[in-house]
Design a protein around this nucleic acid. Structure first.
Length: 273
DNA sequence: GCATTACCCTGAAAGC
DNA sequence: TGCTTTCAGGGTAATG
């Protein structure tokens, strides 16, 4: 389940590998992802050179010259692999981008919750999926004061709020659970009940959790690998996620698991108030 | 307008 | 052992 730190890890790696490469051919499975893959994708991108690779929230944005964007979202089970020309597709391979130097980038996604979309004629931050994103935890604008103002307007539970990409871009279930633990905040708290002090701690908690995960090259349970097939290391540093009935590292109380908005939440009932 | 729920999908794990 | 059921979750459309 790739979240922002996993996408950031991929973006940094693909930037080194792919910028300057020219697309020779694109092969598609023909199966729909979250939305159907654009019919003109292969025709539009063939012969074009990769100019930049950016990340916006959990989206990878590949910019081709001149101003053509391929938007990639890995959903829950999407993976990207970079390797020499193989010719034979693995099961669940949805797209293969073949480069003119006989290497290829393969997109695999067995659940097909991911997205491949094409945009041209607009700036990267005007892509609709990007435009609707909230602030990025790694940006300078991501501050406790800003978060507090937003929280005052919402009656929903803080856990659900943080999963909403229109509010904060890039967090998923793992990093929301870890951030709330880092800040000592109960995931069931209603947003408007958080004080300025809570918001400052939460913003700092989110930033620290995300930065640390990027340093560890992401969290790997079953689905995330980088484009060379290497696993991340961040799962060794998690405090609460998937730790039901494990003792809390701070107080020794058992970590509890509850269900919120159809997602599992892991938290320490003693440390998180 | 906002909050909540249901749905898409398939592999793994649990249950029988 | 092998079949069936349940669960996992990101994003979004539908519903309340």
């Amino acid at each position: 389940m790739p979240e922002m730190p996993e996408i950031e890890t991929l973006a940094r790696q693909l930037r080194r590998i792919l910028v300057g490469k020219r697309i020779a051919q694109i092969r598609l499975s023909g199966l729909p992802l979250r939305k159907p893959v654009p019919r003109n994708l292969a025709l539009t991108l063939r012969g074009r050179t990769i100019h930049r690779i950016l990340r916006r929230g959990k989206y990878l944005v590949v910019e081709f010259e001149p101003g053509i964007f391929l938007l990639i979202h890995l959903g829950m089970s999407g993976r990207l692999f970079y390797h020499p020309l193989a010719g034979i597709e693995a099961e669940h391979t949805q797209a293969v981008f073949v480069f003119s130097d006989s290497t290829e980038l393969e997109y695999r996604d067995h659940r097909r919750f991911g997205l491949l979309a094409l945009y041209e004629g607009i700036g990267v931050d005007w892509i609709p999926e990007v435009l609707s994103l909230g602030k990025d935890p790694l940006s300078r604008a991501f501050r406790g004061e800003w978060l507090w103002e937003l929280l005052q307007k919402s009656r929903t539970e803080i856990k659900s709020f943080l999963l909403d990409q229109r509010k904060v871009a890039g967090l998923g279930n793992i990093y929301v659970c870890e951030s709330l633990f880092a800040a000592g905040i109960d995931p069931k708290r209603r947003c408007f009940t958080l004080t300025m002090d809570d918001s400052l701690r939460l913003a700092e908690g989110i930033r620290n959790v995300v930065k640390s995960a990027v340093r560890h090259r992401g969290t790997s349970f079953s689905d995330f690998m980088d484009s060379n097939g290497n696993l991340g290391k961040n799962q060794d540093f998690l405090m609460v996620f998937q730790k039901e009935d494990v003792k809390c590292v701070r107080c020794g109380e058992n970590i509890r698991r509850i269900r919120q908005a159809n997602r599992s939440t892991f938290y320490c009932p003693h440390c998180q108030k």
